[in-house]
Design a binder for these strands. Structure first.
Lengths: 151, 151
DNA sequence: TTCATATTGACAATATATTACCAATAAGAC
DNA sequence: GTCTTATTGGTAATATATTGTCAATATGAA
């Protein structure tokens, strides 16, 4: 089954990407996970509560919460009052957070460009399309009772 | 940059696959990680020491060691003396281990077939090819000093 | 309003992974 | 033979992520 083979490649690629990301941004005092959280905040058009960020990333709410709290302690993220929900504060990049993301982008760009040079752009697009279709199907996957579970 | 987008899809797909695998084999008392270790043992043509299995999986030796030890305590794996190395025992599936892998395959097959039905087989192959090329490049990636690090 | 439901954050327990370091073993250079 | 190096397993500390549970808050139905 070709699809099972793809699964193994996804596991392997994921591990290497996390390791490579850790190495890339460790001089900035970041890790892959923290960088990804900062990226999710940066990419969102408007400030989001933690639960929404976790949903975007496809991760459990609680894990993202832990990292967001630590990044806030570190001064890279800040909580803003949410007029629509008293508890669900909106997460924003601070000036320091924006600066560190700019620094990360600066080391990331040549690294990604170098990687991309060896790969076929059309095939990259197809791979991204397949993976997105795959995880979208997995998100819809019903439980044994036919319901979709949350949290 | 299209490649950066692919990275995000890999992270998302990885998380969903682990979650789906956990759900699939939890009735058997397995997790995704243990299932993958058992799979690595099953797929190897000859019994391997733990360090080789970890290399095949692209994971740190120590993490695989922990799971192998637990699976051995559970009676699913067994260590066999290695004539070429006194410490590096060879890991093998026990009868129980083979039975549980057969049971896992039985629930996995229809699940994978169902997923594959919605995806283009040719594109799956391309995606696997791209991911393999990607992590191969990441494995070669030199450190800042130009050397390849191990362990 | 009142009630049920969903969302959100907080906290704890656990599984999964990493890195770092050490000891035992093996292989090869000399 | 000796010495150096690489491989391998063991152990510990830590980061990452999951699930489970609870309380606070918001939403919508009755």
């Amino acid at each position: 089954m070709a699809l099972s083979g793809l699964f193994l490649e996804i596991f392997r690629a994921n591990g290497r990407l996390v390791a490579a990301g850790d190495k890339l941004v460790s001089p900035l005092g970041l890790t892959s996970a923290r960088w990804q959280v900062l990226g999710a905040v940066a990419m969102s058009s408007a400030p989001q509560p933690v639960a929404h960020l976790a949903g975007d990333m496809g991760l459990a709410r609680q894990g993202v919460q832990r990292i967001v709290n630590e990044l806030a302690d570190q001064g890279l993220l800040a909580f803003e009052d949410n007029p629509r929900h008293r508890r669900a504060k909106l997460v924003q990049l601070t000036a320091d957070g924006k600066a560190i993301m700019a620094a990360a982008a600066k080391v990331q760009r040549p690294w990604v460009d170098d990687l991309a040079a060896d790969l076929d752009a059309g095939k990259i697009a197809i791979a991204a399309e397949v993976l997105k279709a795959l995880w979208n199907r997995l998100d819809e996957e019903p439980g044994v009772d036919g319901t979709l579970e949350q949290d």
